[in-house]
Simulated scan of single mutants.
Amino acid sequence: MIRHLVLFKLNEGVERDDPRVAEGEAAFRALGGQIEELAFWELGWNISERPIAYDFAINSAVEDADALKRYIEHPAHQAGVALWQEFATWVVADYPF
């Protein structure tokens, strides 16, 4: 199994109540039921107010590197990424477990 972690930081001046953020969150929330490669899918808003904290996180798992590639290339995932690119930056970690 491969754990796929993504941490998002909203761009300067962008707040959680921005309609673009709501659309992006909805797009990613739907992925768990749309992409069969996802063996595990959870996401949520950070509750920490520490200055180093990111704003939003996705914690997911796939069976192997091929499944991760299919997930990343899936049209629904790519559509969500396109939305988030307008208002956030992110970091990714993929590791076997």
Rank of each mutant, 00 (worst) to 15 (best):
E37G: 13
L83K: 13
G32F: 08
A26V: 03
E23Q: 13
Q34S: 08
L10S: 11
R70M: 02
R29D: 00
V91G: 15
E12C: 02
I52P: 06
A61Q: 15
H4A: 02
V21W: 08
W90C: 01
D55K: 06
L83F: 05
F87W: 10
A82T: 06
H77F: 05
P96E: 08
F8L: 14
F97W: 10
F28W: 15
I58W: 03
F87R: 07
D64W: 02
A27F: 04
A30S: 10
P51F: 09
A61C: 06
F97P: 06
F87M: 03
H4S: 09
A65W: 07
D66L: 07
Y54S: 10
L83A: 04
G32K: 06
F97V: 11
I52K: 09
H77V: 06
A82Q: 13
R16T: 05
W90I: 00
A53N: 05
W41F: 07
L7D: 01
G13E: 13
D66E: 15
A22I: 12
R70F: 01
A27I: 00
T89N: 09
F87Y: 08
S60N: 11
L7P: 01
R20H: 07
E63P: 02
D66M: 09
V14T: 15
D94P: 02
D17G: 05
A67P: 12
E12I: 03
V62K: 03
K9A: 06
